[in-house]
């Protein structure tokens, strides 16, 4: 990576990053891995998802993010299917993760445990 030499450079690199991210539209999964998520087992879920998606030949991006603040429902993951609004699932264990892969990621079928977005953001 070249260093950013001006604000215009920064814009360019943002555009390049966005193009790279959106160029290959595919399902995107965020595992929330702050202290609170990790304490509830987010790492296991990350490993499970990585392995299982590969096994089941599903092409998806997995991103490690910080916590959303839903400590009461950790571990939480967010799944964004191409062209749909993202959904956040709470209290995800391996069984739930499996259900999410089979039903939601594969077929867009909802599963129990969705956490509604109750905030606006800037």
């Amino acid at each position: 990576m070249e260093t950013i030499k001006s604000p215009a450079d920064l814009e360019k690199s943002k555009a390049a990053i966005l193009a790279r991210m959106h160029g290959k539209e595919k399902t995107r999964i965020r595992v929330h891995m702050g202290t609170s998520g990790l304490a509830s087992g987010a790492k296991e879920i990350l490993e499970f998802l990585t392995l299982e998606l590969q096994k089941r030949s599903i092409d998806a991006d997995i991103i490690r993010a910080g916590d959303l603040g839903y400590c009461f429902a950790e571990p939480t993951i967010e799944v964004k299917r191409v062209g749909e609004d993202p959904l956040v699932f709470g209290n995800v264990d391996k069984q739930k993760a499996d259900e999410i892969i089979e039903k939601y990621i594969k077929n867009g079928e909802y599963v129990d445990g969705i956490l509604p977005v109750n905030y606006r953001t800037i």
């Binding site: 920064l10 690199s13 943002k14 990053i17 966005l18 991210m21 965020r30 929330h32 702050g34 991103i63 490690r64 993010a65 910080g66 916590d67 959303l68 603040g69 939480t76 967010e78 109750n118 905030y119 606006r120 953001t121 800037i122």
Partner: peptide, 22 residues
């Protein structure tokens, strides 16, 4: 809720500056 401070928390990968730049 309105997220200004937490705007990117849980959204970006904190270990990847490119996500932050995006």
């Amino acid at each position: 809720q309105l997220r200004i401070v937490l705007r990117n928390c849980g959204v970006i990968d904190p270990e990847n500056i490119e996500e932050a730049i995006a």
